[in-house]
Amino acid sequence: YHPGVFRGDKWSCCHQKEKTGQGCDKTR
């Protein structure tokens, strides 16, 4: 789950560079 959006080459919430990554918050 990603609370942010994928912008450019990373997520705005956790700056992960993998769009298919696990995400940053799994509580939702």
Rank of each mutant, 00 (worst) to 15 (best):
V5E: 14
K10Y: 03
H2C: 00
G8R: 08
D25C: 07
R28P: 14
K10C: 08
E18M: 14
F6S: 07
T27P: 13
T27K: 10
K10T: 05
T27Y: 06
W11K: 10
R28C: 14
H15T: 14
K10M: 11
T20C: 15
S12F: 00
T27D: 07
S12M: 05
H2Y: 01
C24Y: 00
G21K: 05
P3Y: 15
Q22F: 02
E18Y: 06
K26D: 14
C14F: 03
H15K: 02
K26C: 03
K26Q: 15
G21E: 09
W11M: 09
K10P: 00
V5H: 07
D25S: 11
E18S: 10
H2F: 00
R28T: 06
W11N: 12
K19N: 15
G4N: 04
K17S: 11
K26V: 15
T27Q: 12
K19L: 12
C14T: 06
F6M: 15
K26I: 10
G8T: 11
K17C: 03
D9V: 03
G4W: 01
H15R: 07
E18I: 12
Q16M: 15
D25H: 04
D9T: 09
C13G: 02
E18W: 07
G8H: 15
C14A: 02
K17F: 06
C24K: 00
C14E: 05
H2A: 00
C13N: 11
G4K: 05
W11R: 03
G4D: 11
C14S: 05
C14H: 04
K19W: 13
D9M: 03
S12A: 01
G21H: 05
H2P: 00
F6N: 12
G21I: 07
G21Q: 09
P3M: 12
D9H: 10
W11D: 07
G21C: 13
T20I: 10
V5I: 06
F6I: 06
T20P: 03
K26P: 14
T27M: 15
C24L: 01
P3C: 08
G8S: 14
G21N: 04
F6L: 08
C13E: 03
K10W: 03
D25K: 12
Q22K: 02
T20V: 13
K19P: 04
V5R: 10
Y1G: 09
K19S: 15
H2S: 01
C14Q: 07
C13R: 02
Y1A: 01
K10A: 09
T27E: 07
D25I: 06
Y1F: 11
K10H: 11
T27C: 14
H15C: 07
K26E: 05
R7P: 00
D9K: 10
R28N: 12
S12W: 00
K10D: 09
G4T: 04
F6V: 06
T20R: 10
W11P: 13
Q22P: 06
C13W: 00
G4V: 00
C13H: 04
P3K: 05
V5L: 07
C14G: 04
C24Q: 04
G21M: 15
Q16W: 12
W11L: 02
H15G: 10
V5P: 03
C14R: 04
T20E: 10
R7F: 03
K26A: 06
K19R: 08
Q16V: 09
F6H: 09
T20L: 12
R28H: 14
Y1W: 01
H2I: 00
E18Q: 01
C13A: 02
Q16E: 13
C14W: 03
R7M: 07
R7N: 11
T20N: 15
G8Y: 06
F6K: 05
Q22I: 03
C13Q: 01
R28A: 14
Q22S: 09
T20Y: 10
G8N: 15
Q22T: 07
T20S: 14
G8A: 10
D25N: 12
D25E: 12
E18C: 06
H15F: 14
T27W: 14
G4A: 01
G8P: 11
C24G: 06
D9S: 13
S12C: 01
P3S: 07
E18N: 08
Q22N: 13
G21A: 14
Q22G: 08
K17I: 02
Q22Y: 04
C24D: 06
E18K: 02
S12I: 01
C13T: 00
K17Y: 05
W11A: 11
D9R: 12
D9F: 06
K19A: 06
V5W: 01
G21F: 10
R28I: 11
D9P: 05
V5F: 06
E18R: 05
K26G: 15
R7G: 07
S12P: 01
S12D: 11
Y1M: 09
W11V: 01
K10Q: 11
K26S: 12
V5G: 06
F6W: 14
R7A: 09
S12E: 02
K26Y: 13
C24H: 04
D9C: 02
C24S: 02
K10G: 12
K26F: 12
R7E: 09
R28D: 08
Q22R: 07
C14P: 06
G4Y: 05
Q16Y: 04
C24A: 02
K17L: 07
C13L: 01
K10E: 08
S12K: 10
G8M: 14
D25Y: 00
S12H: 02
H15V: 01
W11Y: 05
T20M: 15
C24R: 00
K19I: 05
F6A: 07
G21R: 03
C14V: 02
F6T: 11
R28G: 12
R7D: 05
K17D: 14
F6E: 11
P3T: 14
R7T: 12
R28E: 14
E18H: 01
T27S: 10
C14N: 03
